[in-house]
Design a protein around this nucleic acid. Structure first.
Lengths: 89, 89
DNA sequence: ATACTATATGCGCTATGGCGTATATTTACT
DNA sequence: AGTAAATATACGCCATAGCGCATATAGTAT
């Protein structure tokens, strides 16, 4: 039985990505300013990214994820409940 | 039990993302031009994204992944042993 | 209410991503 | 080898991401 990893960290849109980042940041107990420093960005940029209403650069997102000790993974989009996922590539 | 997480779908850097995209595209039997049309981008842009040497916009990457029926997921960075920390960007 | 922190916005500016178009280069197939 | 397709680059142009800096708004406490 395949174990579906964690369904809530799905990141298809900038908004979803922003929400995930914000949640992770708060979980770390960091302010936007603190995260910005670690990611090499500004507080305002973190704010924009977390809201997800304005486009962002891939590098900025990757920097933020790295600062939060997170990372992207790529998987298939349409995933039935208990299907095996492995060997996509 | 089969929680095997395909190691090659790790996407920490633009280069890794590009490689994943290229592999998925070829698996679909598409040319860069075909993928570009489906993603609303140009062939040249797909080329740049797949190489990963030049920065890209998040939206472009998300569009490409969607065209390939793929998606990002966010997970913890340090998972399991033997993490090879590569340089970021 | 007051004071303080955190987050959201605004403006001008610079850097650059992606476009259109075109061409060079590589790869695949006779 | 020769031809065609696929991919990598190039150039000018426009749109915009993120910056520095500042301020406004929203929370969070005394």
């Amino acid at each position: 039985m395949a174990y579906i990893y964690c369904m809530s960290n799905l990141a298809r849109t900038p908004k979803q990505i922003g929400t995930i980042i914000q949640r992770a940041r708060k979980k770390c107990g960091w302010t936007q300013t603190q995260l910005a420093e670690r990611a090499g960005l500004r507080q305002g940029t973190i704010s924009v990214i977390e809201k997800g209403d304005k486009p962002a650069k891939l590098d900025s997102i990757l920097a933020v994820l790295a600062a939060l000790d997170l990372e992207f993974r790529v998987g298939e989009r349409s995933k039935g409940a208990g299907q095996d996922i492995e060997e996509l590539f």
